[in-house]
């Protein structure tokens, strides 16, 4: 149902998104770009974790597979970067199928273990298959460009990162309108029951894992393009944990949740940094505040799980309503207006 009003709304959003680079500095843009890449990855993990109810502790490693494959194809075969990113995603999906298939027949716990193992094994491969990955020194890649138009600056890369993030969001939200997408949710809600009503739990878990890994591969390739470098340290276990945290904090099982979570977790270090810098003027102890930041991150994960399991995707609309409530109480005028609307 596209009516005039929502068309206007989307046009405004599009206009805002399109003009961000014009009025943002490099630093803000780099944050936005990293957040956009994280959104792509988190939307993917959310398909597996939020919608299918399976946990992966190897998301970063699958990002790495995509990054290395895309990087290898670009440097050695000079493939156009869009094609390389696509193949990177497919390679990650295949890796996901290989590592996921033994454990997906079992309880979710075993997938957690299997993905943890694949994280560590893949890290080893990244570091040691030197002829392909460049080992610990990594692999330099060129800035992406189409027909001579280079995306080498933060301003230009923004359109690439944002474009991919939007495509990721759009495809994921359409996925759950299909039979496959709905089968994922059935598995999450009642694993064995789903099997009884005719959904092959293994098959759909595997599909979900493959799709999720595909997104990871694309996000990993994008990160590689942004950094113009692929190194093992971009794809370590703590990054995997961060992605799970994005899904948990954002709100598992909602598209908006993955977006909020990715943005929140990406910006969290800067936020805490800023607050502690203010505090540091009164009580200067960098080490303590660095510790506080880690504690805050851990505590946020715990608090969200305990008290806000629906995450930011539930909180943000609540804040919206709360603000609305404030205005409604203050003046009759706005109520009248909302009445007319």
């Amino acid at each position: 149902m596209v009516n005039k009003k929502s068309l206007v709304k989307w046009a405004v959003i599009a206009a805002i998104l399109a003009t961000v680079p014009l009025y943002s500095g490099n630093y803000i843009l780099s944050l936005v770009n990293l957040a956009a890449i994280a959104v792509t990855g988190a939307v993917g993990l959310n398909i597996l974790t939020g919608y299918t109810g399976q946990i992966s502790l190897g998301h970063a490693a699958f990002m790495g597979v995509g990054a290395y494959v895309a990087g290898y194809l670009m440097t050695n075969y000079h493939l156009p970067f869009l094609l390389a990113v696509l193949i990177g995603g497919i390679a990650s999906a295949i890796a996901g199928i290989i590592f996921g298939s033994p454990s997906l027949r079992l309880k979710g716990l075993y997938l957690a273990m299997a993905t943890l193992a694949s994280q560590i094994l893949l890290e080893y491969v990244f570091k040691n298959w030197r002829s392909v990955t460049g080992g610990v020194s990594g692999m330099y890649i060129e800035s992406p460009s189409i027909l001579g138009f280079s995306f080498g600056t933060d301003q230009r890369f923004y359109y690439l990162a944002m474009g991919f993030a939007l495509i990721a969001i759009w495809t994921a939200s359409n996925l759950f309108k299909t039979k496959t997408g709905r089968a994922f949710i059935a598995i999450r809600d009642r694993d064995i029951a789903a099997e009884i009503i005719g959904i092959s739990s293994f098959k759909y878990k595997l599909i979900s894992f493959a799709i999720s890994s595909f997104y990871a591969g694309v996000a990993g390739s994008l990160l590689a393009l942004y950094l113009t470098l692929v190194v093992p340290e971009s794809f370590v276990l703590s990054v995997s944990i961060q992605y799970v945290a994005m899904v948990i904090i954002g709100g598992p099982g909602t598209i908006a949740g993955a977006i909020y979570g990715a943005i929140f977790v990406t910006l969290l270090p800067q936020g805490i940094e800023y607050i502690t810098n203010i505090l540091a003027q009164f009580y200067p102890m960098e080490a303590l505040f660095a510790a506080l930041r880690d504690m805050t991150f851990g505590l946020l994960i715990i608090l969200f799980l305990l008290f806000e399991p629906k995450g930011l995707s539930d909180i943000i609309p609540r804040i919206g309503r709360w603000f609305k409530g404030l205005f409604l109480k203050k003046g009759g005028e706005s109520r009248n207006l909302s009445h007319i609307q």
């Binding site: 799970v244 945290a245 880690d294 504690m295 851990g298 399991p309």
Partner: peptide
Amino acid sequence: RIAHGPLISVIMVTLGLSIFLKGGVTG
């Protein structure tokens, strides 16, 4: 508060705990 929640939450809460404790030790 969560031991009987979904497996993901249980795993994740102990991961959160581990980050929190490590931060505490750093402090």
